[in-house]
Write a protein that binds this DNA or RNA. Structure first.
Length: 567
RNA sequence: GGGCCUCUAGCUCAAUGGGUAGAGCAGCGGACUUUUAAUCCGUUGGUUCAGGGUUCGAGCCCCUGGAGGCCUACCA
């Protein structure tokens, strides 16, 4: 179909993934797409791809009228692995406990996991992502997976055989090949692995697919000592000294190891599509192993899937308020409108890596977005790029909020730069620049983004308005300079009027040379203008150049200008 | 060892199941009463890393090679 490139709707990766998911579920059946993430730290823009990739597929299905469930699994029953920088060393005590059982070091949430979930949940709401969140802690604890755990435990030998196949490396070619240091390390690891395989009892239990959290100390620092298939009693000892027996059919005190947990979950919820990060998408990794496990032991075809690439960051200045120094979705939303952030993730093929740039590129990004929006208004121009715009700017339920009056981001940020952040003043200057609007609200949400972005720029890229007059400079004015200032102050209108101010700014040197305000400038006047402008920049912003003077003067207001010019 | 991504204009990057290689910046020319990372118009500039193959047609698909980057490799 769609030959000749004539008609036919544009197609992108989302369309194809949605097709795959429908095929997997069966035509006409409800579709389940799933994402998963661990709240072990700040959920950064790389992790966001997990949520958004899945969301776009779910949203496409909703647009088609398909019954779809976007299931988001929080891996909050995973163990706390290490104490990150910036967290008190005492937290080492919690290593080995589930993330939901670790206290929040910042004391603002009820647990470690909530602390990192909460900001992301807000960001996702802003991004229009609707999903059903589930907590592995709650589900494991409530016994939801009991039967699935028993299935995995009964099949543990076969499962281990599968896992072993993926982890056993092919014997490295003759050691005579000398090889690098790395290779000899691998050889050593291989030897260990082979030796371990020869071991029977202890090793087998060491690879048990279910791991309990210690009933006493709550950590997973346990060693399984026996398991009885008849009674489903599992005995373990813990490094804390405890020694207990838990029953897999009646008690819920642990979880499946994660390579088994994943396929179990696919089967339990009948997941039709789940994307995987590049780290998981590699052969022999969790995904490929999981695919085999879900089909052989949980009796379900592997979900449709693809791997997605990583997200890089650039131009991060004062961004990234959260711990870790990596920008999060909330950080990005400070600067980017929600549709634009969505656009970054939908416009590229999933496998492609891309970089989110918080520096000067932001301006261009907004310009391109606005240009694409204009193109999208013409139905005849609907192509893949427009399709990406549609996916980014709205969800099945409707469009995401946009600024009623669209002003170029560059303009907003420049004005914000010189107006010390007062939105009323910005609004007024923007009006004077020719963007009519009824209230500040008409400029939102873009204005707030522009203000935040401008504030994040390094000082040398910003304009710093003087707080007090430059008395030294004022005391050493040349004769011409003094005359210009006198004329300027004399003529400066009290009303904010861009044309009037422009006239004065350019007219001063003319008057000084005996010409009229509206006379054409002579070469001498032009030279004087340069001098005069520099003087004004010196006195207003301590620089030789700066924003266009009429707008700068307007932005500062007559009172401030008079003060800085020594009136 | 296995896998993935990237290589396109001076720079940063587009080109979404093959159909005339495009933008921004920089440069150059011009306009504007205007030094400005807040104006407009025009314009220069590419053997798409190399070599083969498939095709009426390849930046795109296949093979080989090169350079750079990333991921993964029993207990995450």
């Amino acid at each position: 179909m769609a030959r000749g490139g004539q008609q036919g709707d544009p197609v992108d990766w989302v369309t194809r993934a949605a097709d795959d998911a429908v095929r997997h579920a069966g035509e006409g059946k409800p579709v389940t797409v799933s994402s998963g993430a661990s709240p072990s730290g700040p959920v950064h823009l790389g992790n966001l791809r997990e949520f958004l990739t899945t969301h776009f597929v779910a949203d496409e299905l909703r647009r088609r009228g398909v019954a779809v469930r976007h299931l988001h699994v929080w891996d909050d029953y995973d163990r706390f692995r290490k104490v990150p920088a910036g967290v008190p060393a005492e937290w080492a005590e919690h290593i080995g406990r589930p993330l939901t059982a670790v206290p929040d070091p910042w004391a603002c949430h009820d647990s470690w996991s909530s602390h990192f979930k909460a900001p992301l949940q807000q960001a996702l709401a802003d991004l229009g992502v609707e999903m059903e969140e589930i907590s592995q802690t709650e589900l494991y604890r409530s016994g939801t997976y009991r039967d699935d755990v028993l299935v995995a435990v009964r099949a543990r030998h076969e499962i281990d055989a599968v896992l072993a196949r993926y982890r056993t490396k092919k014997p490295a070619a003759p050691a005579a090949e000398a090889g690098s240091e790395l290779e000899s390390q691998e050889a050593a690891a291989l030897a260990d692995s082979v030796a371990a395989d020869d071991d029977t009892g202890a090793t087998e239990l060491a690879r048990f697919p279910f791991k309990p959290y210690c009933r006493d100390c709550g950590r997973d620092t346990v060693t399984i000592t026996s398991y009885d298939d008849e009674t489903t009693d599992l005995a373990y000892t813990c490094e804390c000294g405890g020694s207990f027996v838990t029953n897999l059919a009646t008690q819920d005190e642990g979880k499946l190891v994660w390579k088994v947990d994943w396929p179990m979950r696919w089967a339990h919820y009948h997941v039709d599509f789940e994307a995987a990060g590049a780290d998981h998408a590699t052969p022999g990794s969790s995904f490929t192993v999981g695919h085999e496990l879900v089909e052989r032991f949980f009796d379900m075809p592997r979900p449709a899937w693809f791997g997605y690439g990583f997200v890089g960051f650039a131009g991060v200045q004062k961004m990234s308020s959260s711990a870790g120094g990596v920008p999060t979705a909330s950080d990005a939303l400070e600067v980017l409108e929600a549709p634009i952030l969505r656009w970054l993730y939908v416009r590229r093929a999933p496998k492609q890596t891309f970089t989110v740039d918080f520096g000067p590129e932001v301006v261009r990004l907004y310009d391109e977005w606005d240009a694409l929006g204009r193109k999208a208004a013409d139905p005849a121009k609907r192509d893949a790029a427009v399709l990406a715009w549609e996916r980014a700017s709205s969800v099945a339920a409707g469009p995401l909020p946009t600024s009623p009056v669209v002003v170029p981001f560059r303009t907003l940020s420049s004005v914000a730069d010189v107006t010390a952040g007062s939105t009323e003043l910005i609004s007024s200057v923007i009006s004077d620049l020719g963007f009519a609007h009824d209230s500040v609200e008409d400029l939102q949400p873009r204005l707030a983004r522009a203000t935040a972005w401008t504030a994040s720029l390094p000082a040398d890229q910003r304009t710093t308005v003087r707080e007090t007059p430059d008395t030294e400079r004022l005391a050493s004015l040349t004769e011409d300079e003094a005359r210009w200032l006198r004329i300027f102050l004399d003529r400066l209108p009290e009303e904010a009027d861009l044309d009037a101010v422009t006239g004065v700014v350019y007219g001063v040197p003319k008057v000084a040379r005996g010409l009229g305000f509206d006379d054409a400038p002579t070469d001498e006047v032009k030279a004087d203008q340069k001098e005069f402008f520099r003087l004004l920049y010196n006195l207003l912003v301590s620089a030789d150049r700066g924003p266009r003077l009429p707008t700068l003067v307007l932005a500062l207001g007559p009172a401030k200008v008079r003060e800085l010019l020594g009136a």
